[in-house]
Amino acid sequence: MTDHAETGHDRSDAGLTAIISERRQLINLAYRLLGSLAEAEDAVQETYARWYAMSRQQQDAIASPGAWLTRVASRICLDLLGSARARRERYVGEWIPEPLPGRTEWISVRPGAATADPADPADRVTLDESVSMAFLVALEAMTPAQRVALILHDVFGYSFAEIADITGRTPAACRELASSARRRVRASGRPAAPATHQAGLVRDFKQAWEARDIDALVGLLDPGATFTADGGGQVLTVLEPIEGGEQIAHACVTIAGRATGLTLVERTVNGQPGLVAQQDGVIVTVYAFEVAEGRIKHIWAVRNPDKLRPWITD
């Protein structure tokens, strides 16, 4: 009897460990779907709450707990995306996805996803692209269903039949959703520069900014570059995007002249080279960059303190 009880206990512990081990995967998924680590954590917490609200018999009846958790988390995110648009319309200034510190565990996909749907490998985005700021910003222009279909299929390798079960649509409709979302991503920008090249440009930009060298800054920026800032109404920042390389260069020099004790540090932001600004050792701004055709095309400056919490505690 003792052996039997211990075996049952071991099985229970193994099941609990397997369920908990899905958390990182769920966070990865929810962050890409929502563009907010805080909201992703809330969605995953709600997912686990629904799991533990079931009886042991109901849990044991689920053949694949990991698939169940993914399905529930995706549905929760789908509901949140539906209400997020209205919330962001009331947001003070521009809304930028929450930036992630340079942690390799955030770049993760579903086990075995690389071999899923081999007929359309060209339709997949790379792992780095799936957490880049440019990609996340492009997702903001999509409908919730497009976003879910694209992320689940192109990034995590779920079949359209599985996505149909999550979204309540047909597999054919989900395929079309992913296809239309993919076209939006492709239309939103040019091919991303290699990380090593971007790192060099960001480093040159940092040095020119620190030197307040307007000519050097203009040379590094695309003439049609855009600078977008997100303060969430909590800190001072520009409320409208700054358009044009020369205008951005002058704005950067103005910022450098006004900010005393500000230090720029090279950091990985959403899997790509970026910068953080520290005031008296505290991170006050995170800068993400989009580089294409040898110049900086877009700069995103996140200053909202709520979105910097993962950086402050990093």
Rank of each mutant, 00 (worst) to 15 (best):
Q247F: 07
Q247K: 10
Q247Y: 10
Q247T: 11
Q247W: 08
I248C: 01
I248Q: 00
I248P: 00
I248D: 00
A249M: 00
A249S: 04
A249Y: 00
A249P: 01
H250C: 06
H250D: 11
H250E: 13
H250W: 09
H250L: 12
H250R: 15
A251Q: 13
A251M: 12
A251V: 04
C252R: 10
C252D: 11
C252Q: 12
C252G: 05
C252Y: 13
V253C: 03
V253P: 00
V253A: 03
V253I: 07
T254G: 06
T254K: 12
T254L: 10
T254Q: 12
I255Y: 14
I255A: 12
I255W: 15
I255Q: 08
I255S: 10
A256I: 04
A256H: 04
A256C: 10
A256S: 10
A256M: 14
A256V: 07
G257H: 07
G257M: 09
G257V: 04
R258I: 09
R258N: 12
R258C: 08
A259P: 03
A259D: 11
A259K: 07
A259L: 14
T260L: 12
T260R: 15
G261D: 09
G261W: 09
G261C: 05
L262A: 13
L262I: 12
L262H: 11
L262F: 15
L262P: 02
L262Y: 14
T263Y: 06
T263W: 06
T263I: 07
T263Q: 15
T263G: 00
T263H: 12
L264M: 11
L264E: 06
L264F: 13
V265D: 09
V265R: 12
V265Y: 14
V265N: 02
V265P: 03
V265L: 13
E266M: 13
E266F: 11
E266Y: 11
R267Q: 12
R267F: 02
R267N: 04
R267K: 10
R267W: 03
R267P: 02
T268V: 15
T268Y: 06
T268N: 03
T268C: 09
T268P: 03
T268F: 09
V269S: 05
V269K: 01
V269Y: 00
V269P: 03
V269D: 06
V269F: 01
V269E: 07
N270V: 06
N270Q: 10
N270R: 08
N270Y: 11
G271P: 06
G271C: 08
G271N: 07
G271I: 02
G271F: 01
G271A: 03
Q272C: 02
Q272T: 13
Q272R: 15
Q272P: 04
P273D: 01
P273R: 05
P273W: 04
G274H: 00
G274I: 07
G274P: 02
L275P: 02
L275F: 05
L275D: 04
L275V: 06
L275T: 09
L275M: 03
V276N: 06
V276C: 09
V276L: 10
V276P: 05
V276T: 14
V276M: 08
